[in-house]
């Protein structure tokens, strides 16, 4: 599903391997682009994995993410955020998460990216199972 709220946030859940969208700056004021990918690791909690199985409560996850992005944008004013989370089986070495943040300066983009991931890990209803 795909939701595009007012603050130029794109939130996507996909059951296919994540395809990183071709970058296009949202305006000529963009001076910083921060991208993050979260990959499934082989070693987790001392055990060896083949992959992880992800599930989400998608409507609520989208709503929570919109809320988190809106809140963070008040402190770290950015121009755009793209969030893609893969669901279902994700093999070791493949990305479960992609985040791209665009802003005028690097400080806001870097801070927004880090805080967005921290907040997601606390409040966004997405689960992984080995």
């Amino acid at each position: 599903m795909r939701i595009e709220p007012a603050m130029n946030a794109e939130i996507v859940f996909t059951r296919e391997p994540i395809v990183i969208p071709i970058f296009a700056p949202v305006s000529k004021e963009i001076g910083a682009v921060v991208e993050f990918q979260g990959l499934v690791r082989e070693m987790e909690n001392g055990g060896t994995l083949r992959g992880l199985d992800y599930e989400a409560y998608e409507p609520m996850a989208s709503r929570q993410l919109e809320r988190i992005f809106d809140e963070l944008a008040r402190t770290y004013p950015i121009a755009a955020v793209t969030f893609i989370h893969r669901l279902g089986w994700v093999p070791v070495g493949e990305a479960s998460l992609f985040l791209r943040v665009q802003s005028a300066h690097r400080g806001e983009a870097l801070a927004f990216c880090g805080h967005a991931i921290d907040r997601m890990k606390c409040d966004v209803p997405i689960w992984k199972k080995s």
Binding site: Y57, M60, L97, M120, K121, C122, P125, I126
Partner: peptide
């Protein structure tokens, strides 16, 4: 009503 166990996305 949804029951939301501790989340673990990312």
């Amino acid at each position: 009503l949804a029951i939301i166990p501790p989340v673990s996305g990312g």
